[in-house]
Simulated assay, not measured.
Amino acid sequence: MKRILSLCLGLVAFVAVPVMAQAPAAAPTGKIHGHVINPTGAPQGAGNVTALPSGKDKGDVFQVNAQGEFTGEVPAGTYTLVFRMPDTPQDKQVDKIENVKVTAGQTTEQDIDMSREAYVKTLPADQQKQLEDMKKHNSEALKANEVIKHLNADLKTVADDIHEADATKDPAAKTAKFTEAEQLMLKDTAAKTDASILWARLCQAEVGLKKFDDAITSCKKAVDLETTSKKPNPEVQGLAQSILGEAYARTGKVEDANAAYDAAAKANPPQASFYLKNQAVIFFQQNNAQAQIAAADKAIAANPNPNDPNLAILYYLKGQGLVGSATMGPDPKNPKQQIIILPPGCAEAYQKYLELAPNGPYAADAQGILQQAGQKVSSSYKAGKKS
C-alpha cells in the first residue's frame, strides 16, 4: 500500500511542474537612412521623421541632425516616411514619402527632398517665385565660385612660373615659363575681364617675353581697374605700376617709367624701396646712367635705415652711373702720374658700398676704382690671394 501511495504522489508531483512558455521570435529588422532637403536644396537641419507602417497611424520617430541626416531601425516592411518640423502639430505634416520598402538586414536609403518639383508645386505661388529666384541666384553664385577657384589655381601657377623664370639662366626654360604664364592669363582675362590682378600678371609675363607694347596695354588695364575699384588693392596697384615702369624703361620712355615707379611707391609704401631698387637695376641694364643714378638716389632715400645692407647694391649702382663721367688727370700727390678723376659723389658711393658690403660681389671692383682714383679705401674689404 505504501508503495502505491508513493507512486501516486510522484505522479502528482510530476504533473504539477509548470511548462515554460516560449517567447515569439523577434521580427527581422532593417535600417532606414536618408537626408532631409529643404525647398532651396540645402540640408534641413531640424525636425524629425516618422516611419509609419502601412495602414498604421503611429510609428518610430527619428530625429534629423544639423546636417539634415536621419537614421533608424524598423521591422522589415513597407512604410510612409513623414517629416515634421519641431513645431509641426502631430496631426499635420510638412512632407511625406510613400511606399518605402525596408528589407531585413539591409539599409534602405531614402531622402525626403522638398526641392523636388512635385513638392514645390504644392507651395503658394509667391513662395514658388521666391524659390525660383533663389535657385537662380545660387546657381550663378556657384558658377562664379567655380570660376574664382580656377582663377586662383592659375594665379598660383603663374606666380610659380614667373619666379622660376626669373631664377633660371636657361633662355629656353625662361621663355617656356613666361609663355605658359602668358597663355594662362590671356585665357583668364578673357573669362573675367574685371580682375586687376589677372591683367597685372599678364603684363608681367609679357614683359618677360619682351612684348613691351602688349605689356603696357595690360598694365594700364590693371591700373584703370584699380583706379575705379571701390576697394583698391595696394599690392596689385604697386605690382601693376612697377611692371608698367619696367615696360616703359625697356623701351626708352624714361619719364613715363619714372612716373610709373613713383606711382608704385606711392600706392604701396611698404614696398617702395623694392620698386625703386628694381628701377635702378633696370636702368643699369639699359645703360641709362643718368636715369640709373636718379633711381638709385630715390631708392636710397626711401629706406629709413641708412645702414641697411640691402642699400649696398644701390650705392654701387650710383657709383657705376657716375664713374662713366670720370676723366683722367694728374695725381695731386704726384703730378707726373695720371689717375682717374671721379665726379662728385662717386667715391662716396663706392665707399658706402664697401662699408655696407665689405665682401660683396662688387667689392673688388669698387676698391679697384677707388685705388685708381688715388682714394684711400675706408672699409674692411680684403682682396683674396691671387692664384
Rank of each mutant, 00 (worst) to 15 (best):
A215D: 08
K277N: 13
I293R: 01
I282M: 11
A264F: 00
D297A: 15
A272V: 05
Q237P: 05
Q271D: 14
K211N: 04
A267L: 08
E235M: 12
P270C: 05
G208Q: 01
S273T: 14
T251G: 12
D214F: 11
C219P: 07
D297C: 07
S229V: 05
Q279W: 04
T227I: 15
N233E: 09
L209D: 04
A222D: 05
N305Q: 10
D213A: 13
P304K: 10
G238R: 00
N303W: 04
K211Q: 10
T217V: 09
Q241R: 15
Q320L: 15
K277Y: 09
K211H: 06
A291T: 03
A247F: 05
Q241N: 11
L244W: 01
L317Y: 10
P269I: 09
K298P: 10
K318T: 07
E206G: 03
N287E: 12
A260K: 02
G321P: 02
D213F: 12
Y248C: 02
Q286S: 11
V236D: 06
A291C: 05
Q237F: 05
L209M: 08
A272M: 03
L225N: 03
P232H: 04
A222M: 07
L244S: 02
N305A: 08
L202H: 01
V236N: 06
N305K: 13
N287L: 11
S242Q: 07
K221T: 11
N288E: 09
A249N: 00
A257D: 04
L209E: 09
